[in-house]
Amino acid sequence: MDLTVHAGERVAVVGPSGAGKSTLLGLANGSVLPSTGSVRVLGTDPTALRGRALRELRARVGTVHQHLELVGQLRVVHNVNAGRLSSWPAWRAAWSLARPQGLPEVLDALTRVELADRVFERTDRLSGGQRQRVAVARLLVQRPELVLADEPASALDPLLAGRTLELLAGLAVDRGGALVASLHDPVLALRHCTRVVGLVAGRITLDAPAASLTAGDLADFYGAPR
């Protein structure tokens, strides 16, 4: 596969489960290493970096994971603050667990996902949709340039799903970056993205501007025999 995403683009990655959508996003945030070929993220090859430089690159890439990967035992405020661990020194990260730091920014981010009233709740007490919004709030605090989202709307009702994708897209555009999101819902993909990339069994079988596609085309793509 050969794929280049430019600044300002909002890319929807679609395809049946097991097609390699999560692996593609993992390659971009450095949690999956390429066995062959090369990856360049924000103009840099992450496999060539070590230590501090690698952490600085990673801080510029934000991910909403499919299984959320939040720490259930922590309060919401700490899970949101985890987005700042790349810039905080260790002592500040430790102190924040006792006395939450940077509360105004956290509350601001949580207000934008309509969850400000749960800021001190333990994260494992929240519902699936609420947790998804905590994961988005973490990204709002991290302020990355490249936003990666793995099924960011799967546990949300249509209204919230739309608003979440708007937030993520806006976040990427504010920082002059891009959004790459794997999506199941063709309507969301067409409404919020500028480009649609279709994957089947690890190969790109569709790559077109969203404006040239209809919901029907995408439904056909999902229903395509494989």
Partner: peptide
């Protein structure tokens, strides 16, 4: 946390 750039101590703490 590692993927968003957290250091070893921060990642361990959170």
């Amino acid at each position: 946390l590692t993927a968003l750039g957290a250091g070893p101590v921060g990642g361990w703490l959170y």
